[in-house]
């Protein structure tokens, strides 16, 4: 067993535990947004930051940091709370309209952020993507692009060929940003890999390719494919 101190309590945990798991099992509250018991740690939201006290104290993401013998952890020091408040402030910048963000702001006393950005339902926690890959095993969506343009999407931003509409992404989404919509349109055609059939898409990856009425149009587009050797 590994022995460590968390907020003046001595905890004993088996090897392989993360700080967050140790806290959860011992009813020590640490807020999280992107952590999930059934998914590998991701460390995106940074809400779970805790302080490792020592010669050089530092903040680490408790969801990913493994328990080590003799660690001294503080989950509510000034540094931790300041960091937490900053994270929430940044969340408020894009998503102040979301109940979960407002609840965090209320709990930690964060008011108006110093900046407002374009409103976004998605907080890029990655839960949907990780669930689709790790639990469902289909991997229909992924985090795409970088920086301000980072978004959850499908390959080439078109209707996903692999999505099985299981709704797991919508279930794990903490903000309700994902809706699975029925978009059955008989004329709808995907790109050259697939044949013509009615298709569903989630709103994130909805994409309308240019209307192609028949296989003849495709041939025209591809420059008369039929060849005689």
């Amino acid at each position: 067993m590994i022995r460590l101190t968390m907020d003046d309590r001595t905890l004993a945990v088996p090897p392989g535990y993360t700080l967050l798991q140790a806290a959860r099992e011992n009813d020590i509250p640490i807020p999280t947004l992107c952590a999930h018991e059934a998914l590998l740690p991701y460390g995106a939201c940074r809400l779970c930051l805790v302080e490792l006290v020592g010669a050089r104290s530092r903040l680490v993401a408790s969801c990913a940091y493994p328990c080590e013998e003799g660690l001294k952890v503080r989950t509510n020091s000034d540094a931790v709370i300041a960091a937490r408040r900053t994270v929430i402030e940044l969340l408020l910048a894009t998503s102040a309209h979301l109940p979960i963000v407002r609840a965090l702001a209320a709990e930690w006393g964060v008011r108006s952020p110093y900046v407002t950005l374009e409103t976004n339902d998605c907080v890029l926690c990655g839960l949907c993507v990780r669930a689709c890959h790790e639990i469902v095993g289909v991997g229909a969506i992924s985090l795409t692009r970088r920086g301000m343009a980072r978004a959850v999407g499908t390959p080439f931003q078109i209707s996903s060929a692999d999505c099985i509409e299981c709704g797991t992404c919508a279930l794990v989404c903490p903000t309700g940003a994902i809706r699975v919509e029925d978009v059955t349109r008989p004329a709808r055609r995907a790109h050259v890999w697939q044949s013509d059939y009615a298709r569903r898409a989630c709103r994130l990856c909805e994409y309308e390719p240019p209307a192609m009425a028949s296989a003849d149009d495709d041939r025209e587009l591809l420059g008369n494919v039929k060849r005689e050797a």
Binding site: V136, G137, V138, A161, I164, E165, C166, Q194, S195, D196, Y197, S214, A215
Partner: peptide
């Protein structure tokens, strides 16, 4: 499919 091409059998299961 209607044009004689072999379509994907899209299986929407896990």
């Amino acid at each position: 499919d209607a044009n004689g091409f072999i379509a994907d059998a899209r299986v929407r299961l896990r």
